[in-house]
């Protein structure tokens, strides 16, 4: 059952017509060795919905993003992106594990921004942005360059187009990384603690940029962050995780304002104290 058939997870989800696919986890299990990180996790993210995942470290929230980006393989359950399962494909009426080709097709819908930026240090800013569009999407060079220029303009780094990543500040690197992810025109964008590795004074610039993107695009957004104000600004819904389970979820005002669960209150208090 594709997730578009289900109720949007939040009443505040954007009602406008949206071509971005939704995301749905169906009894997803993930183990690392003997520890089970996710046990039969179920949740749905509506098309174009913006969801923030919060929770203590080890609660499985980053694992969710990594499963979606195909960086980790699930040990059980189904992950839907739009009308298709990510890790399985239809074969003769049944489902078989996905092959590389299927994963390649599915990844076209998804983009990710990493905590550590992960820009390619052997390429300048422009190459970082054109590599994917040219090699994967098959864009001609001039089109890829044009797209890169537009995105660098948007992230405010048009003048650093020829710079080497190591010459950029952390905040600038992360803005390039965001532009790089967007250059692939993903429908689902994953943000994994994108400001955690930044010096405090650089956090605001990156957050402002992401706020704009969240406001102006109709991307489905999954965001893991410890910045509660930021989470409040960009998300339609907040999900609180602990030990691989959703403790509670709801609109940001409710989760941050009047959480109903003790574990959420403890977590928020700990985050605010730090």
């Amino acid at each position: 059952m594709p997730p578009t058939d289900t109720e949007p997870g939040s009443p505040t989800a954007d009602p406008r017509v949206c071509e971005a696919p939704g995301v749905r986890f169906e009894k997803v299990v993930k183990r690392f060795g003997s520890t089970t990180v996710l046990r039969e996790l179920d949740f749905t993210v509506a098309p174009g919905e913006r969801v923030t995942l919060i929770g203590p470290s080890g609660s499985g929230k980053t694992t969710i993003l990594r499963l979606l980006m195909t960086l980790e393989r699930p040990d059980g359950g189904l992950i839907w992106v739009g009308d298709d399962t990510l890790w399985h494909m239809e074969r003769g009426g049944g489902r078989v594990p996905a092959n590389q080709k299927h994963l390649h097709e599915m990844r076209k819908r998804i983009g990710m921004v990493f905590q550590q930026f992960n820009l390619f240090p052997n390429m300048n800013v422009l190459r970082n942005l054109t590599e994917g569009p040219m090699r994967v999407l098959g864009l001609p060079k001039d089109e890829a360059v044009e797209r890169a220029r537009g995105l660098l303009d948007m992230v405010g780094l048009a003048d650093r187009i020829d710079a080497h990543p190591s010459r950029l500040s952390g905040g600038q690197q992360q803005r390039v990384a965001i532009a790089r992810a967007l250059a692939m025109e993903p429908k689902v964008l994953l943000l994994d603690e994108v400001t955690s590795a930044l010096d405090p004074e650089l956090v605001v610039g990156v957050q402002d940029l992401l706020r704009d993107i969240a406001r102006e695009s109709d991307l489905t957004l999954l965001c893991v962050t410890h910045e509660m104000t930021f989470a409040k600004d960009i998300s339609d819904r907040v999900m609180m995780f602990d030990q691989g389970q959703i403790v509670e979820e709801g609109p940001p005002e409710q989760i941050f304002g009047e959480p109903s669960e003790q574990r959420t209150r403890d977590f928020l208090q700990a985050v605010l104290a730090s």
Binding site: L71, F114, M123, V136, M184
Partner: peptide
């Protein structure tokens, strides 16, 4: 992280190695 970024960009295997 370099491997992961290459995966996230959906680069084909040969490009991941060569580029």
């Amino acid at each position: 992280g370099q491997w992961e970024a290459a995966t996230a960009l959906n680069l084909p295997r040969s490009r991941v190695w060569l580029d």
